[in-house]
Amino acid sequence: MNYEFLVETYETERIKVVSVWSEFQDADLPVRPRSGDPRGRSVHEQMVHQCVSEDLWFRNMLGIDVNAPPLPATETRLEFMKRYEEDSGKRLEVLRARDDSWWESDTKFFDVKRSCAWVIVRRIAHTAHHRGQQMAMLRMLGRDVHSNYGPTADTGGLMQNHAPTIYAYPSLQALFDGEMDGGAKVPLPGGGGKAVTERPSDQV
């Protein structure tokens, strides 16, 4: 199948979403990028948007319906994580079963015609965009940040300085086990005194 790389990318992206959500606390859900400014989504609204928009894209554009409500009955951090993990897991299984003819077939993307493969690429980009916003909010909250793609300031800084990639948990199962027990993330070493950006002179 020529589009296995997109299936694999969606598989890892869904893990990254849940991993970032695990870095927040329930008390963070009402927080916005700028307090009192409703133009910036709160953490809660970001979670709602991820669940609702992905459900709509898959159902309306790709014909993939997981037959479940997109939002959890109780809108807590952990329940959002469970809901999204379950629903995205079902979508992943459907994508794995699709052949090349489906990926190359046309569908409606809002008011234009695009291939299913094109829509999945845009969906992955959409998810990554919002996940980046949420990781910026973790920094605004003063939180440590585990790896999501590669090294962070808390795992050792820059890739060129051989900083390691350190995920919060080794698997989704470990993540849920740990978070349901109050949190058991892998400890972070910090920057170790090394520069954590390419322009360290700009750091205060």
Results as ranks from 00 to 15, higher is better:
residue 128 A to R: 10
residue 33 P to T: 04
residue 20 V to M: 05
residue 16 K to C: 04
residue 77 R to E: 00
residue 81 M to D: 00
residue 154 D to P: 00
residue 88 S to F: 15
residue 59 R to W: 05
residue 124 I to Y: 07
residue 149 Y to D: 12
residue 156 G to I: 01
residue 123 R to N: 13
residue 15 I to E: 12
residue 160 Q to R: 15
residue 42 S to R: 13
residue 112 V to E: 07
residue 167 Y to N: 05
residue 27 A to N: 04
residue 95 L to P: 06
residue 118 W to K: 13
residue 129 H to P: 01
residue 39 R to Y: 11
residue 142 G to M: 04
residue 106 D to P: 14
residue 156 G to A: 03
residue 94 V to R: 04
residue 200 P to L: 01
residue 87 D to I: 01
residue 137 M to F: 14
residue 194 K to N: 14
residue 75 E to D: 05
residue 68 A to S: 13
residue 40 G to M: 11
residue 100 D to I: 07
residue 140 M to K: 10
residue 35 S to G: 13
residue 58 F to R: 01
residue 170 P to F: 15
residue 185 K to I: 02
residue 154 D to E: 14
residue 138 L to E: 07
residue 118 W to V: 09
residue 39 R to T: 11
residue 6 L to H: 13
residue 133 Q to R: 06
residue 5 F to V: 05
residue 50 Q to S: 07
residue 191 G to S: 11
residue 9 T to N: 14
residue 46 Q to Y: 07
residue 101 S to A: 15
residue 57 W to K: 01
residue 27 A to M: 02
residue 183 G to R: 10
residue 25 Q to L: 15
residue 3 Y to T: 14
residue 162 H to S: 11
residue 92 L to H: 11
residue 48 V to C: 08
residue 8 E to Y: 01
residue 39 R to S: 13
residue 147 S to Y: 12
residue 39 R to C: 08
residue 72 P to G: 12
residue 80 F to I: 00
residue 72 P to F: 11
residue 32 R to A: 01
residue 175 L to S: 02
residue 108 K to L: 11
residue 4 E to R: 09
residue 167 Y to K: 11
residue 96 R to P: 00
residue 101 S to R: 15
residue 96 R to Y: 10
residue 91 R to E: 04
residue 58 F to H: 02
residue 156 G to S: 03
residue 130 H to M: 03
residue 198 E to P: 05
residue 68 A to I: 10
residue 100 D to H: 06
residue 128 A to S: 06
residue 202 D to H: 14
residue 44 H to T: 03
residue 154 D to L: 12
residue 43 V to G: 05
residue 33 P to E: 02
residue 195 A to Q: 03
residue 40 G to A: 13
residue 48 V to N: 05
residue 180 M to N: 14
residue 198 E to A: 09
residue 91 R to Q: 09
residue 129 H to T: 00
residue 162 H to K: 15
residue 136 A to I: 11
residue 20 V to I: 14
residue 156 G to H: 04
residue 36 G to S: 09
residue 150 G to S: 09
residue 165 T to L: 07
residue 35 S to L: 11
residue 68 A to Y: 09
residue 186 V to T: 12
residue 102 W to V: 05
residue 113 K to W: 10
residue 35 S to Y: 12
residue 57 W to T: 12
residue 45 E to C: 05
residue 164 P to E: 14
residue 102 W to Y: 08
residue 204 V to R: 13
residue 129 H to W: 15
residue 94 V to H: 07
residue 59 R to Y: 04
residue 177 D to C: 06
residue 150 G to Q: 09
residue 69 P to G: 06
residue 70 P to R: 00
residue 89 G to H: 02
residue 190 G to R: 01
residue 132 G to R: 08
residue 89 G to A: 03
residue 174 A to C: 12
residue 195 A to Y: 10
residue 86 E to I: 09
residue 65 D to Q: 02
residue 20 V to Y: 01
residue 23 E to C: 04
residue 55 D to E: 03
residue 152 T to W: 07
residue 96 R to K: 14
residue 179 E to L: 06
residue 135 M to F: 08
residue 116 C to L: 04
residue 79 E to M: 05
residue 188 L to A: 03
residue 124 I to N: 11
